[in-house]
Design a protein around this nucleic acid. Structure first.
Lengths: 198, 198, 198, 198
DNA sequence: GGCTAATCGAGACGGTACGTCCCGTCTTTAG
DNA sequence: CTAAAGACGGGACGTACCGTCTCGATTAGCC
């Protein structure tokens, strides 16, 4: 009835050692200086053990992402009841991360990995909260009538994340006030916000 | 008085052959299968001739961009007097390009190259019109009072381009109506647009 | 008094499957393309079952030899009463075998295996009749006064076999008449043979 | 008219370093523990530089032989005017060499290499004097009427060398007197030698 | 019949070496 | 002095096997 399984079972120790080594080296040296041989050596593992389970280094990175070893798994905005302030808080948090050289090269490396491997892209997108934490915050805002209930939340989310990516790729500096201006752009300036109920 | 120059001068034929070979191979096989040796061979040129003038393959790609060999040099929105329609037209044009496999992989390769090399990033940013053609259109719109004169045009531009990049990296499909929704997000829905003057 | 034995006993089926697979692969691909993994797979057997009973691939080949799976177990000269003719017949038989590509590569593989593993060497030597069938024929020849009773039979035997090995290793062609010339060399030319008794 | 040659020329330093490293490692660890990577490392050379000029490790070994780095290039019998004594001297010299463990494993390694690669075989054959020095000695012996002028010298030579190879492969000990007995076998016992002229 | 071993197939594991692809530098010859 | 050609030392690739080590299943003697 059930699937036959024979032979030794996959070693969890090796799996973890590999992912941890990958995360360590990725953070230390960036995506394109990451090598399978380096990971194997760092993890104390044969190369074949890596190739047995992952097809490429980008798949390795994707798995690290999935396990939350490169970024906090749910990086979303807070909910203080004030959607504009919460989004600004969240953006500023991210801006601060990427303002540091290490944060910048980490994100650029992730972008490079995502460009190369669809899986990394999908997981990075999920990780960055664009689908989960951020959307939840918008739904809460709709429920609280902070924003219109027909607001295109996916587009709004991407209009917040996207500029970050663009600035990083173009190496444009992120000036003070950028977060506020972005939130104003996507939610509309305060003065033209939706009318309060009643 | 003048600089003394002896011996053969830099060969323009070689320079063009190299850039054309780079563009050809980049389009055909993508950024990370592009090799200096491949370019040298394709261009019928010695490797040293490439290394003499360009420090890396990403610099080569950056130069191709600058010469408009990878993307049209000025890809900007039209100006029909209707900023919303013009932006939608422009976005849909880009969306159509990246909906084709070749366009998608071209852009993803450019993103990867930009992530790896600051120069490519800067030039790509300029190329994509985010600073020039797009900003000019916004200035025209301000002049025509189509949008507020204190609108943060850089942020608006990036809030239009950014989501494209995010969708490509995350491999999210671009659904019909996305362009309209994005324009609505960044300019505000029509009904709450700025009041007509007077 | 006797050794205690518990648990499953050695599988004769596995043993035979392994030896047969070894012989098959050895003949097909030669000694140095023979792999334990290949034998295990071909025999439908786990690798450990091979390692449990044989220490190395050359031991495997030695066992195949011992079971006569690679060469006829007793390849010796006939006895028609004419020692010279019998030796020529025997040599020509061998020469014909090694003239075919398959025979040549089989023997060269065996030589390589023998060079690598003393056991293979000893068993091959025995197999090739140099100690048994050939010596028996010489003893018969001595009994029949065909050759001197103090003839150094081991040296004579090796002086017949050795040139074959040398020709194979040096890839010298074996020309017609070689067998006769060799027999003449080791037994002395007919005209100067030992005087008939009486 | 002449062949065009452009680009850097082959480095003699690299060639020598590689051959010397090969000879050193071959002598130290034997043919089948010899690795291309080991040679490259020992020679301080990139692997590709080896693969550019030699197709396999056995070709490397063959070249070492050709340069006389593994064996003296002309290992032949002396000429004191007494062919039997000279041959015995020569054989005993070789027997002494192969009686030492290092000599034995060197020769066995050469045999293994010869079995694998025709070129090694041919060059080894030439090196061992079977074609040159030994044949010259026989010709001198014929000229001096020490042996019959129609003696099959190639067969005689191989009937001397061959048994050595057979003993090495079969790991039979070489007992005292073997050289004499072999010479007796191939030249005939003294008592039945050719009649002195006159 | 249950217990204890040993064997079997399968195959994962840490390794070593393979032969290939490119890197960026250096060397040679032609123009 | 530039350019083509291409050899060089080096690093990583992805693959093939090595010999060892689990696994779960099966098989035999012993209580």
């Amino acid at each position: 009835m059930s699937e036959q399984r024979r032979g030794a079972v996959r070693s969890e120790a090796a799996r973890r050692a590999i992912l941890e080594a990958t995360a360590r080296l990725f953070a230390a040296r960036g995506y394109d200086h990451l090598t399978i041989e380096g990971v194997a050596h760092e993890a104390g593992v044969g190369k074949q053990t890596i190739y047995r389970w992952w097809p490429s280094k980008s798949a390795l990175v994707a798995d690290c992402l999935l396990e939350g070893m490169l970024l906090p798994n749910r990086l979303g905005p807070p909910n203080t009841g004030d959607i504009r302030a919460d989004l600004v808080t969240w953006l500023d948090e991210i801006f601060e991360l990427v303002a540091q050289p290490i944060g910048e090269s980490l994100i650029l490396s992730l972008i490079a990995a995502a460009a190369e491997n669809p899986d990394v892209g999908r997981r990075l997108y999920a990780s960055m909260g664009a689908t989960s934490a951020l959307v939840e915050r918008f739904e809460a805002a709709i429920a609280a009538s902070e924003i219109r209930d027909d607001a295109p939340v996916q587009e709004i989310g991407e209009a917040l994340m996207g500029p970050l990516v663009v600035r990083m790729l173009s190496r444009s500096p992120i000036t003070p006030g950028t977060a506020e201006r972005l939130v104003d752009v996507v939610l509309g300036p305060v003065s033209v916000g939706i009318a309060p109920p009643g």
